[in-house]
């Protein structure tokens, strides 16, 4: 079943065409990688799905609903969570609070019940805290749960950001370069988390990644963007041998098809 369908999406910033006639279908339950050189339009595509950008043309369907008709904050309620290329955590909050904020759409308390912290609000906090603790265990970040996020190392922050997205209990998870800037060990951990999220929790994952080794290892489907256009699509094997893709990557230093 197709969960996410991007149809004929074009996105322009003045004269810059960030995306041109992009068609993309993400299969429910898949790990779908989006690759391409810097400036290809990958982040812009995720931003269109998150409603941070509004496509100049085209529509995006998630489980049959046209996302372009929703406000940005409604996207989370539909079941889509994401991480950002440059970590966008709530730096002044603890790890726990960042994850609890991930539960925002599932919580019901308002100003009065929160301010008085009466039965309902307190019970709710405790119930959702248990869900968040599960995620903390899963990501192995127990030791830092009370730490202020701004003080954590980069790799840990990436992990916390993944945790915040998971706390939403999404059906589709969008990850923008989840392994960028990590060492090999951290990358392996992250790859394992992504696989587990996909297999154990049944969450569809669409991820942008530069490390071809990782992409080829974990993804079911790969889409290649270049200058805002899709130049290749298919299984990792198909994409790897696609002459269009190979020529687009010729001369690219940071991206190589070397398996880890």
């Amino acid at each position: 079943m197709i969960q996410l369908a991007v149809e004929e999406v074009t996105l322009q910033f003045g004269g810059v065409v960030a995306l041109r006639d992009v068609n993309l279908q993400v299969e429910q339950g898949a790990i779908h990688a989006i690759i391409g050189p810097n400036g290809a339009g990958k982040t812009s595509l995720l931003n269109c799905i998150s409603r941070l950008y509004h496509p100049t043309q085209g529509r995006i369907f998630f489980e049959g609903r046209d996302l372009t008709t929703f406000h940005p904050h409604k996207i989370a309620e539909l079941g889509i969570a994401r991480s950002f290329q440059n970590i966008e955590l709530f730096r002044g909050m603890t790890v726990l609070d960042n994850l609890m904020l991930g539960r925002h759409v599932h919580l019901r308390s308002g100003v009065l019940s929160g301010g008085f912290y009466w039965g309902k609000s307190q019970r709710e906090e405790i119930a959702h805290r248990a869900i968040v603790e599960d995620i903390i265990d899963f990501l192995e970040i127990e030791a830092i749960r009370k730490k202020t996020v701004g003080t954590l190392a980069y790799g840990l922050q990436k992990r916390v950001e993944l945790g915040r997205a998971l706390a939403l209990e999404p059906r589709l998870l969008l990850l923008d370069e989840p392994m960028a800037g990590m060492n090999v060990e951290e990358k392996e951990d992250m790859a394992r988390f992504i696989l587990d999220i996909n297999e154990e929790r049944g969450i569809t994952v669409a991820l942008i990644e530069h490390d071809m080794g990782v992409v080829m290892d974990i993804s079911d489907e790969v889409t290649v963007l270049d200058f805002g256009q899709i130049i290749g699509q298919g299984t990792p094997e198909e994409v790897r041998s696609d002459p269009n893709v190979i020529s687009a990557y010729l001369g690219e230093q940071e991206v190589t098809f070397r398996p880890i």
Partner: peptide, 16 residues
């Protein structure tokens, strides 16, 4: 606090 620290991320997480 989320709005103070990172309003766009807050919005993406569902904060109106």
């Amino acid at each position: 606090v989320a709005i103070r620290d990172q309003d766009i991320a807050a919005e993406v997480m569902g904060v109106n």
